[in-house]
Design a protein around this nucleic acid. Structure first.
Lengths: 329, 329
DNA sequence: TTGAAAGCGCTAACAC
DNA sequence: GTGTTAGCGCTTTCAA
């Protein structure tokens, strides 16, 4: 159906190899011949079959990215950054959403590896990564981002300072006078959620009260109900620390203007336009993606050094919601 | 480096073809033999080289998606829907961002076609699609979504009712008593922006005033300045219709609470939590993606009918900002 | 039920 | 400067 190099060759009256040379920009082709070949290529609408090239050369010039959900702004920001670095290195990005499902994560990685991606960037959903062993051994480098891999493998990792960010948030609320600070977090099986809980707990010290902690997959019904329940306690929270962007939004939607001091992990668009502005601990999704993919391309360029474990800083952005005093609620 | 079928075959003591049969689940293999082969596969960590399979069979089981920017919630929502339909059909999604650059759009399509995607879904950045001719002729179907292709090709198209949505927005504002309604739109070279301008103009009739129209690529400096200039006119607008989600946010950021009736094209998260809530004409990005990819898979399943041109409805969601009367500003 | 051989479209290695 | 040949890892075809 589609024209092949052979078709181009006979159309241009040259040998296969000459067409290959022209297509690949190899030197040592007579300009006139090259022009004739190019004309044939245009006339036939030829485009090289990458599968054949890959089969021969081994390198696919593709990179695989596994994230949780591309429609989540955090991951789409991260994905865009990875894509840009990939383009800069002449690579195509394959990406897929795991939906927080370890089985699907595995399947995506398997699919990518079967397509022989040159490298992998993974936001893991599961915590057993022994399945990656053969791929790593076969020379396919992997970089984990946002969350570390299980103990079975030791690969480059780029995380943010989860515990530190949580401590920052809680300390900020304590400085405003709060002693009853709730934590609404994601499911404790998720690394970042567990780390943020640790930071929250450390910063609270003796003020820690398990009745003020809710950790579950974010959905309005569950987390919202937990918050309502806490607010109905005899000694209710006067402030809340939300464990990620989605939970912050869920919380705002539950509160609907009721005053409660709030600091959220993750920045989000429009946080500054709400009333009051939402104080957040901001991480840099694009930065995570950029650093992770640069690490990967360094590996692809031949870096065989020990696995690197990087941590990116977070910063607190005060906008109003986190500066309300306990008496305001 | 990586084990091949041949390696598995010799490890299991069978012929290449038997391994192939097991890997592909073909019938007619002795269960005992199959088990032995599977053991060898696990022991070696074998995974089939898809490039080789594709080279032989022709079908890649991949679909290419070209969008404007994956970090834009509109496109990431669309992309996620396409991904889900692709998964349901056992396909991998290749996607890339054109960044509103026709050259990059072309390059992405070329890359995808060189990788022999089975089909294409395109949000075009340019308006000349003659370059797609050879691919279409070679049997690679394409579906255009959000914006139509240039006149050179006639392919399946899924759009939303841009002009109708704009009329809806303006009529809504007129009903609230507004006669001076500004339009802040994206660059007029973009199909959706041009269509929305048409609808705006049609709904305004004799009230149309070019001094109240700004059309340019969204950025705070430019569009914000245009709006400020309009607000400084002797007969300033009392309402504004913003042409897409990004422009709505830009406008909110420019106004920073100053009262001005507002209806925006595109819904966005938190629109309901702002004060006042932002009235929007909502389209359904996931619906666009889903319908477009279902159309594509129908083509891949063999549908050879004439090109379809679908239009998805939009709906107005009143939240407060569009119901303010002229005297409020 | 199993296997041998040919060939998908390309590039690497080596003629000429 | 150009062409010939072999072979990447798999599936298809045909034979045993």
């Amino acid at each position: 159906m589609r024209p092949t190099m052979k078709d181009v060759a006979s159309a241009a009256g040259v040998a296969l190899k000459t067409v290959s040379r022209v297509v690949n920009g190899e030197p040592g082709v007579n300009p006139t011949t090259a022009e004739r070949v190019r004309a044939a290529i245009d006339a036939l609408g030829y485009s090289r079959n990458e599968s054949a090239r890959v089969l021969r050369q081994g390198r696919t010039a593709t990179v695989g990215l596994v994230i949780e959900d591309i429609s989540d702004p955090f991951y789409s920001g991260l994905g865009r950054a990875v894509e840009q670095v990939a383009i800069a290195h002449g690579c195509l990005l394959l990406s897929g959403s795991s939906g927080e499902n370890p089985e699907r994560e595995r399947e995506l990685v398997r699919t990518f590896c079967a397509r022989r991606v040159d490298g992998l960037i993974v936001v893991p959903a599961g915590d057993d990564h022994s399945y990656l062993r053969p791929e790593l051994d076969a020379g396919t480098p992997a970089v984990f981002v946002d969350r570390p891999p299980g103990p079975e493998i030791d690969v480059d990792t780029v995380l943010c300072d989860n515990a530190g960010g949580a401590r920052l948030a809680v300390a900020h609320l304590r400085r405003a006078g709060h002693r009853r600070i709730a934590f609404l977090g994601d499911s404790p099986s998720i690394f970042t959620a567990a780390e943020r809980l640790k930071g929250y707990r450390a910063a609270l010290g003796g003020l820690f009260d398990p009745a003020l902690v809710s950790m579950r997959a974010p959905d309005l019904a569950g987390t919202g109900a937990d918050l309502e329940h806490m607010l109905g306690l005899p000694d209710p929270p006067t402030a809340v620390f939300t464990g990620n962007g989605r939970l912050t939004v869920t919380t705002l939607r539950t509160l609907r203007g009721r005053p409660l001091a709030l600091v959220g992990f993750d920045d989000f668009e429009l946080a500054d336009l709400l009333t009051p502005g939402v104080t957040v601990v901001a991480q840099d999704p694009a930065g995570l993606g950029r650093v992770a993919s640069e690490l990967l391309f360094r590996r692809l360029a031949g870096d065989r050094g020990p696995a690197q474990h990087l941590q990116l800083p977070v910063r607190l952005i005060a906008r109003g919601s986190g500066e309300q005093s306990p008496s305001d609620s």
